[in-house]
Design a protein around this nucleic acid. Structure first.
Lengths: 138, 138
DNA sequence: GTTGACGTCGACGTCGACGTCAAGGTTTAC
DNA sequence: GTAAACCTTGACGTCGACGTCGACGTCAAC
C-alpha cells in the first residue's frame, strides 16, 4: 500500500509517517515512480509506535520496540531493551504521579485557604442580592 | 533594587524577569539611566508567579493573581478570578491524574504481559551463567 | 487534454518559557 | 584610564512531533 492508505488505516497523517521515516523508525520500499510502498508489517510497526505513544513514550523511546519488531520478533516487547524501557517509563510515570499528587494537594490547600480568607460581605451574602446578581450574570 | 538583585533574590534570571515584563506580568520603573527599578511588591509578585508555576500553572494562568495583587489585595488569591483559576487548575490536575493512572496501569499490564511471554532459556536461567553475565555487565 | 486525487521533496511555522549570543551604554573600583 | 560588573535592546536558538505551504511529478477517469 502507499503512504495515504497507511495513514488512513493507522489514523495518522502522511506527514507523520514521513517524519517517522526521517527519524529512522520506518523504512519504505519505493515503487518505480518513487512512491513509498508499505506492507502489513509496516502497519503493525506504526500501530506499535502509536500504542507506545499513548502510554507516555516519546518517539525516541519507541526505538527498542521498533528494532525488536524489525529483528523478527512477533511483538515489539519481546526483547530485553523493550522490557527495560517499560521499566524506565513505569518508574518515570510513578515519579510523575507522586509529584502531581503533591501538586494537587498543594493546589487544594491553596484553594481552601483562599476560600477561608474570603470574607463574605453581608450585602452579597443576602440571598436576594445573590439571586439578583445571578440573574444579571446569566 | 535593580534587575540583577531581583533575579538573585527570587532565584531566577534577568532574562526571565524581562520576559515577564514583555508578557505584561511585571512592570518596572526606570531610573535616570534607563535601568529598571523594582521594589518589595515586585519581589512578592515574582515569588507569587513562581509559586503558581510550581503547582502547574502557565504564565498566562498567573495573570488573575498578578492583577489581584496589583489592585491592592494582600494576597494574589483574594479575588474571584484567582479562585476560579484555582478551581480550573485543580480540575485539570485531577483529570491528568486520572489519565496518568490509567496510563500507569496500562504500562504495568504491558510489562507483566511481556515478562510472562518471555521464555527463559535454560542456559540463561542457569545460576552460574547468570552470575557470570552479571559479572561481565558490571 | 484536462481535471482531480494522489505522490515527491524542501523548508519554514507552531507552542512555552525562557537561553544565549551580540553589540553596545553606565557605574564603581583601582 | 581602564577593567570589571552591571545594565540596555534585539534577535535568533531550544525542544518534540509534527502542521502547513509551495512547487512540482504521476496516474486514472472523463
Amino acid at each position: 500500500m502507499r503512504i495515504g492508505e497507511l495513514a488512513r488505516r493507522t489514523g495518522t497523517t502522511t506527514r507523520a509517517l514521513r517524519f517517522y521515516e526521517a527519524q529512522g523508525l520506518l523504512t519504505a520500499h519505493r515503487s518505480a515512480n518513487g512512491y513509498r510502498e508499505y506492507d502489513e508489517d509496516d502497519l503493525r510497526l506504526v500501530t506499535e509506535i502509536q500504542t507506545l505513544q499513548t502510554v507516555g513514550m516519546s518517539l525516541d523511546d519507541t526505538r527498542p520496540f521498533v528494532e525488536c519488531l524489525r529483528s523478527g520478533h512477533e511483538t515489539g516487547d519481546s526483547c530485553g531493551d523493550s522490557i527495560e524501557m517499560y521499566r524506565r517509563k513505569l518508574a518515570e510515570v510513578d515519579a510523575f504521579l507522586t509529584r502531581l499528587g503533591a501538586v494537587r494537594a498543594d493546589l487544594h490547600d491553596k484553594l481552601t485557604e483562599a476560600l477561608g480568607r474570603q470574607e463574605i460581605p453581608s450585602y452579597i451574602a443576602d440571598p436576594c442580592v445573590v439571586s439578583a446578581v445571578h440573574h444579571i450574570r446569566r
